[in-house]
Design a binder for these strands. Sequence first.
DNA 1: GCACAATCAAACAGGTCTGTCTGGTTTTAG
DNA 2: CTAAAACCAGACAGACCTGTTTGATTGTGC
Lengths: 207, 207
Amino acid sequence: MAMTLELKSEAFDEAVAWTCIGRDASTARDRVLNAATELFCHHGFAATGVDTIASQAGTAKSTLYAHFKSKDKLIEAVLEREGKAWRDWFFGRLGQIHGTPKDKLCAVFDILEEWFSDPEFYGCPFINAIGEATSENENLRSAAKVHKSHVNVWISAQALELGFLSPDDLVREMTVLIDGAIVAAQVTRDAKYSEVAKSLIANRLAA
Amino acid sequence: MAMTLELKSEAFDEAVAWTCIGRDASTARDRVLNAATELFCHHGFAATGVDTIASQAGTAKSTLYAHFKSKDKLIEAVLEREGKAWRDWFFGRLGQIHGTPKDKLCAVFDILEEWFSDPEFYGCPFINAIGEATSENENLRSAAKVHKSHVNVWISAQALELGFLSPDDLVREMTVLIDGAIVAAQVTRDAKYSEVAKSLIANRLAA
DNA sequence: GCACAATCAAACAGGTCTGTCTGGTTTTAG
DNA sequence: CTAAAACCAGACAGACCTGTTTGATTGTGC
């Protein structure tokens, strides 16, 4: 099946934080999503129970199930919302960068370093979710694919502006460097791995 | 605390597979470890219960607890053994590579591609375990650190042979590229991300 | 043959899990 | 004011969780 993605121009709000954890929540649905995001991301998806989520959200469990058919659907909703929040923040920060496409591609890793440096940094929830059960859950895999595609469209645009004939090469290189920096920073708690990735892409763009 | 690691010369047996899943298991302890490794790695650590493990191992649950004090200790034992198995395979394959240090550093990613191409590939269990609960479990983080250090010692030796004044730079670059390739391959099920990482390190070593 | 260690099945304890349901209360809209 | 929608606390079902215990059965060394 040819998955059609409308990724051309995602309207993103200027967000100030890379996570939606702690955002104002007026409706019960939002409070559930906030609590679920925090608990899932910090303690794991399988390890977090719906009772805990409802309790932390200050809602009844029946309200949680009124909004989300199952825990799996809640997980999907959390990933979707958190992915959107992260991209709003990321592209918002990128929009403040002025310079050549090369400058912007390198600046990606400065922005990532800000993310890694947050004491609340818990890695990429999509990567973590897939890591919990690589074998099953093809839903999570496609959700991750959509999330990453938004970033890849932007990278591809920079590559085209640089005159790359096949922008996909650069996209794949950036994928390896971004994912590698995320995981290295997560495992070691050392935000400076972003600089390593930055130097590698700078070196490659100079060639 | 200054963690002292004895990583200088790990004696590794010539192993044929990158995982110990499916190995001959004579003792009940080994059958438990085999079953636990398979279930943990494919379906997740939190998602796998000890009853399931004992059942798949063909042992009594009491036998499992006679060998491992708790599920957490079993997880640690699984990671330790699986890490050793992977390194035996990895360094065994590396030992078959002849050429300059540059050749060997590049060949790392050919070997990784073999790993990624296995239909049973489930990513790096250390990364997955940390991803399940980034906040807690400092034990897992140090287990991962030890595992990665074995690889880093080898990379450092190549860097020294190449005349690098600070081999740590190359070690950190390889870390980003290796972790990035692992995760990209795991998320997308595309083993070819190893080639992307290989070209990036080749480009850097040429500079 | 005997003692000892390893292993077995099965029950048990005390929680926690997801998901449903009931019935009452609050909020909102017209 | 009233009717509908949203939300609440709490009980419930039935399964699964980790970890322990009991007592029988196997295999091994001497």
